[in-house]
Design a protein around this nucleic acid. Structure first.
Length: 293
DNA sequence: TGCCAGGGGTTCA
DNA sequence: TGAACCCCTGGC
């Protein structure tokens, strides 16, 4: 453990954490169950738990947890094992990316649960972030378990593959507003629940192999697969290309439009093994500043 | 007020 | 390769 941890009542303080602004991460588009509050803290639902996290000067304060849980769950979830000073050094020297990294000073990757990431990014297809977040909340409320309460509202965990695989397609559509993605959610959950696909085994594959497996899920194409690889499986060189990244790359790096499927390889050539992390900085910077739009 | 385009893509013809 | 797809919101 490379950080000094102090225990407080119902929480921990992680001392001297560089480059971690929870509000920026909440806005980064990689997470859908991080909700920024008025005091600049962020409520997070993950791993069947509700926690609250806030930057206080050099430190990160996490409430709703304890030291052993922090070490077992949140340390890895918040990617605290990776040195972002070093990551940013490696990526530095590119004028546009330097601007994006300065803008996203507190951005970092979050290591999320593969199943939840798969389902939420299936929902993201041809969709918009507020509606994605709403659908994810409704799925948790309908099929998850009550795990706590905030501001008078019950908070629910994300359901298991077993539960979602048995959900009624018409009911999912009716209640959770996912539209045509209803069948994809149930069918993907079935493939996992019945053992046809074992998500944990993808950790043992290389990026191309894991990608080819993920694409077997209905509703998972190349872009969604790349998001799952980057946000759940720690493939830092996975470079998801959505309409925003395409516009940003064309505006900042390319003379002319190139096919979407070639932009990922271009990104890896340009930024190397950490291309996916570079993509996060560019996505955040580009979307907040409407680059290319 | 009401209509219409378009959105973190994927699928199917 | 291109149209269709649920639903919702912002712009006119």
């Amino acid at each position: 453990m490379k950080y000094k941890i102090d225990e407080i009542e119902n929480g921990v303080i992680v001392r001297d954490v560089k480059h971690f602004n929870p509000v920026q991460v909440a806005e980064s588009g990689q997470v859908f169950r991080w909700n920024a509050l008025e005091d600049d803290s962020v409520n997070i639902v993950s791993h069947g738990k509700l926690i609250n996290i806030k930057r206080e000067k050099e430190d990160i304060v996490i409430r709703g947890t304890n030291k052993s849980e922090f070490e077992n769950i949140w340390y890895d979830y918040f990617d605290l094992g990776r040195d972002y000073v070093e990551i940013r050094n490696i990526l530095s020297g590119d004028i546009e990316l330097d601007k994006a990294m300065e803008y996203g000073e507190g951005l970092r990757m979050v290591n999320q649960d593969p199943f939840e990431t798969t389902i939420t990014f299936i929902i993201s297809a041809n969709n918009q972030i507020p509606r994605i977040k709403k659908s994810v909340e409704l799925i948790a409320k309908t099929y998850g378990e009550a795990i706590g309460e905030y501001d008078g509202e019950t908070v629910y965990s994300f359901p298991s593959p077993e539960v979602l695989s048995k959900a009624d397609v018409a009911e999912i559509r009716e209640i959770t507003r996912v539209g045509f993605r209803d069948q994809r959610i149930v069918d993907t959950s079935k493939m996992i629940a019945n053992g046809e696909m074992i998500l944990d085994e993808l950790y043992n594959l290389n990026r191309e192999e894991a990608r080819n497996e993920l694409i077997k899920f209905p509703g998972v194409g190349e872009k969604v697969a790349d998001c799952i690889l980057l946000f759940a499986y720690k493939f830092a060189d996975s470079f998801p290309v959505d309409v925003w990244v395409q516009r940003i790359m064309e505006t900042l790096y390319l003379e002319e439009p190139i096919p979407k499927k070639h932009i990922g390889d271009f990104g890896r050539k340009q930024f190397g093994e950490l291309a996916g992390i570079a993509q996060q900085f560019l996505f955040y910077y580009g979307r907040e500043n409407k680059i290319g739009k």
